[in-house]
Design a binder for these strands. Structure first.
Lengths: 253, 253
DNA sequence: TTAAAAATAGAGCGAGCGTTCGCTTTTATT
DNA sequence: AATAAAAGCGAACGCTCGCTCTATTTTTAA
């Protein structure tokens, strides 16, 4: 069942849940992927043990660096929080910096996947929806990863810093291209560039201020609806339904 | 001449320049204010010397912490960049943390001032415009300050961390209140809360991604226009002019 | 049962951190 | 030109950092 077909039946429905169930970059599968992509730098040779440790390390890193910042988090702090000894830490990661690099790598891979899925759509409106929802849903599931990369880009080696900026550039350019295709003429109300910037800002708002959105799984669908609706309005897309009508069915939004 | 009167004559005009000329929180006056507010913690007793050093210290701090992050910036780095000795640094600031606290203090004062100016306006539409333009213009002039506070809130003592979050909360609540007053009924297209969130995201976008906006003084007026226009559209404000008309006069926007 | 793999505790390394303090230089006033 | 106060200096202190290493124990999987 296609995305739009579903939405016509029940707006603000279980799209996120569907995405979540298909999303392979989470849980053990995610850490398995990290293990595969960093085998050469990880001393632990068996996947099972590596996954267990990586899970602990990233969970603790996100918790500590959210509180203190990555630079202020010491490896002794991390050792305490993970329950691993110093030696244990260094058998799963090559050094402190490598933690940040892996986060960048994961976000990079996930974003590339979302762009790919969007490009499979023929209809630009569907492609835009796939893109916006993809970013919102993925950054909800991987909130600490996206959040970390935004705030800790400075902690990366300079090559990866550039890579991190490039991710953002690709995101906004992809949005801009699709929005550009949807604007009837060049005399649109708002230029595609500005609308794409706004869209990305709203996407980032969501994972940067996650404390505002306590039950993400409940509300992220509605948030995505509102973002898309706002994009349509910004580019004067007439074909869109008046938004009061969309939200008339359920009281809260 | 009032804000709207001017805009009717020439949209995207010299509003920023006017703001800039009236804005007292810049240059020596700003550092004088910092000196006054921190006299007890500053060993240098003569304003003239304090201003000279504070200027050096904050300029260098913003440059270094943008590159490395505040935590990674050492006071030896700062000493080298300012040309001051370690002792010289410590005669103008009480310790490293104090630098970040002062930034929070400055942004806090400036934001309070903007809210105050907005509240002086009777017409909610004018008040909203004053608020949005105020935030955009002030954060353009004080871009490094706003940028620093956003990224380095974690480096503050916990009391000031809360203070920093509160600034953001006040900003969005003030926007929300005014937008709420402008929405005709409760069945508005978008809830005021969401539109306020979007507005603040766009304001922050501007000073967080300042590398995108090379000539801020030239374009910030147009950016403000676009933000306000988008807010009006989001809340289905009919009285607003079609935006194509506004931008018809000048080619680029 | 057993050999390999994983993990531990923690002493220790050099480097660099934030901060201090006794001293010298500059300033402003006589 | 003299002088007292203010400003500025930079070596040194105690400490923590990222990281390594060893001896030892525990866990795993055949």
């Amino acid at each position: 069942m296609s995305v739009t077909a579903r939405q016509h039946l029940q707006p603000s429905n279980a799209l996120y849940v569907d995405f979540y169930n298909d999303f392979t970059y989470q849980g053990d599968a995610l850490y398995g992927l990290i293990f595969e992509r960093n085998k050469d730098k990880i001393k632990v040779s068996k996947e099972k043990f590596a996954i267990k440790n990586l899970k602990k390390i990233f969970d603790a890193t996100f918790q500590l660096s959210t509180q203190l910042g990555f630079q202020a988090m010491s490896l002794r702090d991390l050792s305490k929080a993970t329950g691993l000894s110093m030696g244990g830490l260094y058998s799963s990661i090559s050094n402190k910096e490598a933690i940040a690099v892996i986060v960048k790598d994961v976000v990079s891979v996930v974003c590339a996947e979302i762009v790919e899925e969007s490009r499979e759509q023929q209809d630009p409106k569907l492609a835009l929806q796939t893109l916006v929802r993809g970013y919102l849903y993925a950054s909800t599931i991987l909130q600490p990863w996206f959040y970390f990369l935004f705030f800790e880009t400075k902690s990366l080696p300079s090559a990866d810093q550039e890579g991190s900026l490039k991710i953002e550039l690709i995101q906004v350019k992809e949005l801009e291209a699709l929005i550009g295709q949807l604007t009837p003429g060049s005399d649109s109300c708002h230029k595609a560039e500005f609308v794409a910037t706004m869209a990305l800002s709203l996407i980032q708002e969501r994972y940067l201020k996650h404390w505002k959105y306590k039950n993400p799984s409940e509300s992220v669908d509605k948030y995505a609806d509102k973002c898309l609706q706002l994009i349509y309005r910004a580019i004067c897309l007439d074909e869109v339904q008046p938004c009061t009508q969309i939200y008339a069915s359920d009281g809260e939004n």
